[in-house]
Amino acid sequence: MKARAFSYLRARTIEEALAAHSQAGDDARFIAGGQSLVPTLALRLQAPKLLIDITHLAELRGVRREGEFLRIGALTRHREVMDQPLIAEFAPLLRAAAPFVAHPAIRNRGTLGGSIALSDPAAEFPAMVLALDAEIEIAGLSGTRRVKASDFFVDLFETALAPGELVTAIHVPLFKTSQRIAFDELARRRGDYALVGCGMIASYDGPKIETIRIGFFAVGPVPTRARHAEATLNSHALDAARIAAAQAALEEDLAPPDSEDVPPAMRLHLARVLLGRLLGRIGEGA
Rank of each mutant, 00 (worst) to 15 (best):
G140D: 04
L141H: 04
L141A: 08
G143D: 06
G143W: 00
G143I: 07
T144H: 02
T144S: 08
R146G: 00
R146S: 02
V147G: 03
K148P: 07
A149Q: 00
A149Y: 01
A149S: 05
S150A: 14
S150M: 10
D151A: 12
D151S: 13
F152S: 01
F153E: 01
F153P: 08
V154I: 13
D155K: 10
D155V: 00
F157R: 09
E158Q: 10
E158T: 14
T159R: 07
T159P: 03
A160Y: 00
L161P: 06
L161S: 04
P163Q: 11
G164P: 07
G164D: 08
G164R: 03
G164I: 04
E165Y: 11
E165L: 10
V167G: 02
T168W: 08
A169P: 06
I170L: 05
H171W: 15
H171S: 11
H171G: 07
V172H: 00
V172W: 00
P173E: 04
P173C: 15
L174R: 01
L174F: 04
L174C: 13
F175Q: 05
F175I: 06
F175D: 02
K176P: 06
T177V: 14
T177E: 15
S178N: 12
R180S: 08
I181R: 05
A182K: 02
A182L: 05
E185P: 02
E185D: 12
E185L: 10
L186H: 00
R188W: 09
R189M: 12
D192T: 04
D192C: 12
Y193K: 04
Y193E: 00
L195K: 03
V196C: 06
G197A: 09
G197K: 08
C198E: 01
C198N: 12
C198K: 07
G199C: 10
M200Q: 11
M200N: 14
I201C: 11
I201F: 13
A202C: 14
Y204C: 08
D205Q: 15
D205S: 15
G206N: 15
P207W: 15
K208Y: 11
E210N: 15
E210K: 15
T211W: 14
R213K: 15
F216T: 01
F217D: 01
A218N: 13
V219Y: 09
G220C: 13
G220L: 04
P221R: 10
P221L: 08
V222S: 03
P223F: 05
P223V: 06
T224D: 08
T224A: 06
A226C: 10
R227P: 02
H228N: 11
A229I: 02
E230L: 12
A231Q: 11
A231G: 09
T232V: 12
L233A: 07
L233E: 04
N234L: 13
N234A: 12
N234C: 06
H236F: 11
A237G: 09
L238F: 07
D239W: 13
D239C: 11
A240N: 02
A240R: 01
R242C: 13
I243T: 06
I243P: 00
A246D: 02
Q247V: 05
Q247E: 11
Q247H: 14
A248D: 12
A249N: 07
L250T: 05
E251M: 15
D253S: 11
D253L: 08
L254R: 01
A255L: 09
